[in-house]
Design a protein around this nucleic acid. Structure first.
Length: 484
RNA sequence: GGGCCGUUAGCUCAGUUAGGUAGAGCACCGGACUUUUAAUCCGGGUGUCCUGGGUUCGAUUCCCAGACGGCUCACCA
């Protein structure tokens, strides 16, 4: 770094500006590589290109010098020599450092060893790099540095960019799929006076002018449903949710969620739609529905297995349980399987806990778990055949929840009761119980059409598609504790 | 928040078994070299051994506390 600062001063002394304004680029390295792939070894193309990018490697050979130039399309070799540049300019080229941004112009040829190369006849320094790059061969492995200085990770570890592109494509394909089916994307508040739509601890912030607390949203759900009340029959939003919970390999404080609401549809429609959507999106992104995840095969080809939550729990505990099973019996089963319970919990919550501890981690192939208990689903419509259940399902893949969907609760009186139940749980010490949202109740009182709604964890889907273990591998700048 | 593990050069890592302030490869600096591509050859270690305290004649090494990270458990998606 010290040496490079000196170089910077030397350059300025020679009247060379180390930070240029612009450069007239004619081609990307990828274009050149595709276009002249068929050139014979040692052959000339007769084409003159201007490339721009960062120098990633330098191989100096006295009166000739090779460099690898990286742009967003890839890398291309440059060759500079006294013959091509002249003495003075060649000396300046030799003085470049790995990491410098340059623009280079010259004819494209293929070297004797078959490498497509630009013979530099003119170049200019576009931006001087003052810090040495991480090692070219081993790259940057220190995970802390990789996350804290992601720009370095992006520079030297190609798979980081590949994973990012899978994420970009996934989001793009989700949008395309929904747009093609008449859904419209809206933007609802990130700052909410009442944090609703999920049960989670929110981040709290304060609005000075209003003199009141606002909460970073934990879900867009209640606002999207207000859109449906207003007559928007197919709406969606892909954006961040914020939850003030623990950080782990599958949790980041801010994460990306797709939520859509579809008027006149129920949860059966949603299940079929989800199968179609993921099959379409994943095929577009990966070219296949069957791929490896964490050294096991994963096949997302629909139709997916469907099982009710009570059925799954019954199989796991080895005895029949249903919504008629008394809470004491469920507790006894939980104890027998070393699943801890808390005293305020009802039968529905205990059954769900049994499912999450005993069944969910073992569901590898995509599975639609149907009919969650009423007690754990304060915004879902009661099941048409059993009022202790709701018309709700979750999609579990590789042991993790990927999507959550239900026939929406549109009955304002029922919704009021459910909120009041949640309020009692809150008073009983459950900090994450849902807060009553009176304005939302008022919206429902104006009438909401029968609607199906679905939420999909985009980061978790991308983790599956990139075969990554940690959510931090699919989020560009994951949260870490700030150092001193 | 709990448990376990880790932190040494710009990067990737050795090492101090048993206390005497440290080494390799790449990168970097000087030299040779006009088709190399992890270029090669010759010469050169550039360091707050995470931080603070303790023990000791002496600590990067041993002890204690802390910071940050990883894995994991708990909460959650």
């Amino acid at each position: 770094m010290k040496r490079r600062m000196e170089k910077l001063e030397e350059l300025r002394g020679k009247g060379i500006k180390p930070y240029a304004l612009r450069y007239e680029r004619t081609d990307m390295t990828s274009d050149i590589r595709d276009r002249f792939d068929a050139l014979l070894d040692g052959g000339e193309s007769g084409y003159t290109a201007s490339l721009a990018g960062r120098i990633m490697a330098l191989r100096r050979h006295g009166k000739a010098c090779f460099a690898d130039l990286a742009d967003s399309g890839g890398r291309l070799q440059l060759m500079a020599s006294v013959n091509s540049l002249g003495e003075a300019s060649y000396a300046a080229f030799q003085d470049l450092d790995i990491g410098d941004w340059i623009g280079a112009r010259g004819e494209v040829f293929k070297s004797r060893r078959g490498e497509i190369t630009l013979r530099v006849s003119a170049f200019e320094l576009l931006s001087k790099s003052l810090r040495p790059l991480p090692e070219k061969w081993h790259g940057l492995k220190d995970v802390e540095l990789r996350y804290r200085q992601r720009y370095l990770d992006l520079m030297v570890n190609p798979e980081v960019k590949e994973n990012l592109m899978v994420r970009v494509k996934t989001v793009r394909e989700l949008r395309r799929f929904l747009d093609e089916r008449g859904f419209v994307e809206v933007e609802t508040p990130m700052l909410q006076p009442i944090p609703g739509g999920a049960t989670a601890r929110p981040f709290i912030t304060f609005h000075q002018a209003l003199g009141q607390n606002l909460y970073m949203r934990i879900a867009p759900e209640l606002y999207l449903k207000r859109c449906v009340v207003g007559g928007m029959e197919k709406v969606y939003e892909i954006n961040r949710n914020f939850r003030n919970e623990g950080i782990s390999y599958k949790h980041n404080p801010e994460f990306t969620m797709l939520e859509f609401y579809w008027a006149y549809a129920d949860y059966n429609d949603l299940a079929a739609f989800l199968e179609e959507m993921l099959a379409d999106v994943v095929t577009s992104v990966k070219g296949t529905l069957s791929f490896e995840y964490q050294e096991r095969n994963l096949d997302l080809t629909p139709p997916w297995r469907r099982i009710t939550l009570m059925r799954a729990v019954s199989e796991a505990v080895g005895s029949e349980v249903s919504t008629r099973t008394p809470v004491e019996e469920l507790r006894a089963l939980a104890n027998g399987h070393e699943v801890p319970t808390e005293k305020g919990w009802g039968a529905g919550k205990v059954a769900t806990e049994l499912f999450e501890k005993l069944v969910e981690p073992n569901l590898w192939e995509p599975t639609l778990v149907m009919d969650y208990p009423r007690e754990v689903s304060p915004l879902a419509r009661l099941h048409r055949d059993d009022p202790q259940l709701t018309e709700r399902f979750e999609l579990i893949v590789a042991g993790r929840e990927v999507a959550n969907a239900f026939s929406e609760l549109i009955d304002p009186l029922d919704q009021r009761e459910r909120f009041e139940e949640q309020a009692r749980q809150r008073e009983g010490g459950d900090e994450e119980a849902h807060v009553v949202d009176y304005d939302y109740l008022r919206a429902l009182e104006y009438g909401m059409p029968p609607t199906g709604g679905l939420g999909l964890g985009v980061d978790r889907l991308v983790m599956l598609l990139t075969n990554t273990h940690s959510i931090r591998e699919v989020i560009l700048f994951p949260h870490l504790r700030s150092g001193n």
